[in-house]
């Protein structure tokens, strides 16, 4: 007798790329960025990743058990590991251990499971976790190692010691602001860009080190595009959004606003373009909707960076667009076969 709980409806053949496979590709695509992190900052990121993944798996299991799901099917989809990695990459590599634990806990329990788990979370859980940390522990998130000042890269053991030490960030002298937050504080002091440039290592085009992090994300993203795990619409429209807004600002006043190349390769732009706005669950799904979503997130990112109170605007921009995604989808329904002109549009 057939098992009627498992429907025997057609089609009877499948050729899909299962969700665990998709999540694995995303993890592979993060390898270049992680490598660059290790090169620039030492082994801190590896320790953060370990803590993040362990916390995420434990809390995901707990949430699934509480909600009455089988662990095997749901844990193996790998989505929570991706979440943990993205969040770990978003915080300073030598932030104390409890920062990532709190962030992951909030992301998994509130960002993901409170909304119904994978597929139902309306906000990108990694960004929800990041925003929670940013609002509650801004100091912990602002202490990035100043790359140009690091002489001795912390090894694995040293990293563990630093992260476990319960202090905020690295010893003074080697910790400081990122390029974006440095610009933010200097702009508040009414300095122009040509003045600011002399006070921090600007690297080749987008801040020493950060440009390489972004290029690494871009490489991973290119690979995801080639593997057709992400579709071009979201990342491209996001980059167009950031780039066009930056270009416009730069043309209007070059002393107050930096150019498109800087904004594309500064802060979390590329991380957002390929790993955050491309989260299918919380972004738009219609073809036109994807373009609007990306453009909107890009514009908002730029506006928050330039006019808001925070150095980087990626997380806020994405979460705001997440909230708008259902509306965008509703008003960007593609034309369907046989649609007549007088058919009522929804």
């Amino acid at each position: 007798m057939n098992d009627l709980t498992h429907p025997v409806s057609s089609p009877h053949i499948h050729d899909a790329r299962p969700v665990p496979w998709i999540m694995r590709q995303v993890l592979y695509a993060l390898i270049p960025a992680i490598t660059v992190y290790v090169y620039l900052f030492g082994c801190g990121i590896l320790v953060q990743l370990m803590i993040a993944i362990t916390t995420a798996l434990v809390l995901e299991s707990l949430a699934l058990l509480l909600r009455g799901y089988t662990l095997k099917a749901y844990l193996s989809d790998g989505s929570v590991v991706v979440l943990a990695c993205l969040l770990a990459l978003a915080i300073p590599p030598y932030a104390p251990w409890w920062v990532i634990v709190v962030g992951v806990a909030f992301a998994v329990l509130i960002g993901k499971h409170a909304f119904g788990g994978l597929g139902y979370n309306i906000f990108n859980p990694a960004m929800v976790g990041y925003l929670f940390l940013m609002l509650c522990y801004p100091a912990a998130l602002s202490k990035w190692p100043e790359m140009s000042k690091i002489v001795d890269y912390p090894g694995l053991l040293e990293s563990v010691r630093l992260i476990a030490a319960h202090s905020v960030g690295m010893p003074d002298g080697v910790s400081g602001a990122t390029v974006l937050s440095h610009i933010k504080t200097q702009m508040v002091l009414m300095h122009t860009h040509s003045e600011i440039e002399s006070t921090i290592n600007f690297g080749t085009f987008a801040g020493y080190g950060w440009e390489w992090v972004n290029i690494a994300y871009l490489c991973g993203g290119g690979w995801l595009l080639w593997r057709r795990v992400v579709k071009w619409r979201l990342p491209l429209s996001f980059m167009v959004g950031v780039g066009c807004a930056a270009l416009l600002g730069h043309v209007i006043d070059a002393e107050l606003h930096r150019g498109a190349v800087f904004h594309l390769f500064a802060g979390g732009t590329m991380l957002a373009a390929f790993f955050v706005v491309t989260d299918p669950v919380s972004s738009s799904t219609t073809p036109v909707g994807m373009l609007l979503f990306g453009l909107g997130a890009g514009l908002l990112t730029y506006c928050i960076r330039e006019f808001g109170g925070y150095p980087d605007g990626v997380a806020f921009a994405v979460v705001i667009m997440n909230a708008l995604a259902p509306l965008i989808d509703r008003f960007t329904q593609p034309r369907f076969y046989g649609k007549t002109s007088n058919t009522k549009h929804i």
């Binding site: 969700v19 799901y69 749901y74 989809d77 788990g117 994978l118 219609t286 989808d329 593609p334």
Partner: peptide, 27 residues
């Protein structure tokens, strides 16, 4: 044997790109 999957829609949009009618299967 069916793969042990969670059956959660991640809204990847693969379905709408193959739908010959241009519907939004995920919605």
């Amino acid at each position: 044997t069916a793969e042990n999957l969670s059956n959660a829609c991640i809204r990847c949009g693969d379905c709408l790109s193959v739908c010959p009618v241009g519907l939004q299967p995920q919605q």
